[in-house]
């Protein structure tokens, strides 16, 4: 009996682990891009996470002004991605600041899919 419950527990654990990593391929690509670090103009390392953090359900902070940035996860800030013009504006600005260039349509799609999945 004891053995059975142990096996069950292990199986449950495995199921939980696989559920956690279960993400659409695009969203997973987006996550990779989100954490990708690029060397900035002043030799500083920059990534999306520099200001937004790795836990998307938590608020981020502007590096220079320390202004609070509302969480990026759609589950926490549902209104975030409703205005396409606003989304385009922030992608343009922040891609340039972070990676020194505009993001491609594919990159933007992947990142957006990741942010919305959270």
């Amino acid at each position: 009996m004891h053995q059975y419950s142990l096996v069950l527990l292990v199986l449950l654990g495995l199921a939980a682990a696989s559920a956690q990593s279960e993400q659409t391929p695009t969203a997973e690509q987006g996550r990779q891009l989100w954490i990708k670090e690029v060397l900035g103009a002043k030799g500083d390392s920059r990534a999306c996470t520099t200001c937004h953090g790795t836990d998307l359900t938590q608020a981020g902070e502007h590096q220079r002004t320390h202004k609070l940035i509302e969480p990026m996860a759609k589950s926490v800030t549902p209104s975030r991605y409703e205005d396409p013009k606003k989304v385009a504006k922030w992608f343009r600005r922040n891609c340039k600041w972070t990676w020194g260039r505009e993001c491609t349509a594919e990159e933007k799609r992947a990142i957006l899919s990741y942010l919305k999945s959270q």
């Binding site: 013009k85 343009r92 600005r93």
Partner: peptide, 12 residues
């Protein structure tokens, strides 16, 4: 505005 004290602050 593209280099607003080191930040990109482009506007439409």
């Amino acid at each position: 505005l593209e280099d607003h004290f080191g930040e990109n602050a482009e506007l439409g």
